[in-house]
Design a protein around this nucleic acid. Structure first.
Lengths: 226, 226
DNA sequence: ATGGTGGCTTAACATTGAGTTAATATTAAA
DNA sequence: TTTAATATTAACTCAATGTTAAGCCACCAT
């Protein structure tokens, strides 16, 4: 298994050194940055799986940097964790807006940090973090609705998750196996026609043209621009 | 949208003028104060959303003033940001934990400051949503009642907190987990049907249409405009 | 203490509708 | 043309939620 790449961002070099030393010893591939701007640079090249970033930094703060990093599609699956001084800080709210995945509170306890890092990396492909959005359709996970040209459509759970999956990579074909694994879970076993029926119901609600069948392969979402 | 109110506090009039000029140009409503005492006075009247205050000032320093300001309940949601010289070790200042929300380092770069202010006020906006109020319903935490089209409804604690939570983000789905964590607390364990019963009682009192069930996901508050 | 009151939880049972299946029709690739 | 893959429809199943009432406990006034 290839070692995970972690980017550390903090304006305090002592903290950087400490964490880098320990994480490298644990077998991670580590890079560091002293500020937000530098972090964006390094992130775009290094493509880390995890970024641990101080919220409060001179020049460009963590929240701002986080927003910038999220703009890079290649970093869509990268997990961003903020370091915050107080656990109940309001910046948490702003941070989640910016696209942060987790918070680590200062002062840092190495043992806690390591177990947290393992947990975050285990999550692996955090496809829930993707912004499922195309020109004419948008998935709103918070409200659990689909917005299609200003029309709000509410969908049952399975249909919602299915559509969200397909929309996570427009034009990409998803095989039945992948759909099962992602929407139903590896262990659940259901009949062959179950997916078809859900596709049917989706097409009924959002229109036939959005979901295309690739016979013998799977399904894909294509945006309808008229 | 009404413009945000900002209070600037610094003993250097040049800085005050510079910032006031630029922030006013950006569309903010700005007032200034030359010292801590003055700041408290102005803050209590002006009720700004954001206070940017120098840490080091004659008479009463920023930390002391911050503590005083925090005593005013009307300013509970006001964000306080300290201006600090870069060389200063702000961990020391943060140690005081006077209630500051953020730090801005000198020398001030307008561009950075403006983006930071926007960021800070965005938190405020999020916080504003905590004033649970929709077109037809309003939560009054002081009186512990709900006002629905001029009708006052008094609710028991759990029902009140539950409704307040749902109303904190109208249209957003809250999972049972989140509801438990927020209204009951992480450690308290109660039966599965407890939430349902409280939902039932709420629906009985405010009407069925306000709380919508998203099966397999959670509950959401939707405003009824008729 | 005593008894009443109301909030909260639980348990038992009812209901709903999301999800699945099965049976049949249609499609598109070879 | 052939045929496996997918579409379609409706019936069915069951887990999730709704509903009701009873019971417990804290609190309050007597």
């Amino acid at each position: 298994m290839k070692s995970s790449k972690i980017l550390l961002v903090d304006d305090d070099e002592d903290i950087l050194d400490l964490l880098e030393y320990n994480l490298t010893k644990e077998g991670y591939e580590v890079k560091t940055a002293l500020n937000g701007e530098k972090a964006i640079e390094v992130a775009n090249e290094f493509l880390p799986e995890l970024i641990i970033m101080d919220v409060m930094m001179p020049e460009m703060d963590g929240i701002e940097a986080c927003g910038e990093i999220r703009k890079n599609k290649l970093l869509a699956n990268t997990i961003i964790a903020f370091l915050t001084a107080r656990s109940e800080d309001y910046s948490q709210i702003a941070g989640f807006d910016a696209g942060a995945d987790d918070y680590i509170t200062k002062p840092i306890k190495p043992k806690v940090l390591f177990s947290k890092i393992k947990g975050l990396l285990r999550r692996g492909t955090v496809e829930d973090q993707l912004i499922e959005e195309t020109a004419t359709m948008r998935i709103d996970r918070e409200k659990y609705i689909v917005v299609q040209r200003d029309t709000e459509i509410s969908l049952p759970k399975k249909e919602f998750e299915l559509l969200a999956l397909l929309m996570s990579k427009p034009d990409n074909v998803f095989t039945r196996e992948k759909i099962f694994a992602s929407v139903w879970g590896d262990d659940i076993v259901v009949g062959d026609r179950t997916i078809d029926v859900h596709i049917r119901k989706l097409r009924e609600k959002i229109g036939d043209d959005y979901i295309k069948t690739v016979k013998g392969v799977g399904y894909k979402f294509v945006d309808v621009e008229d």
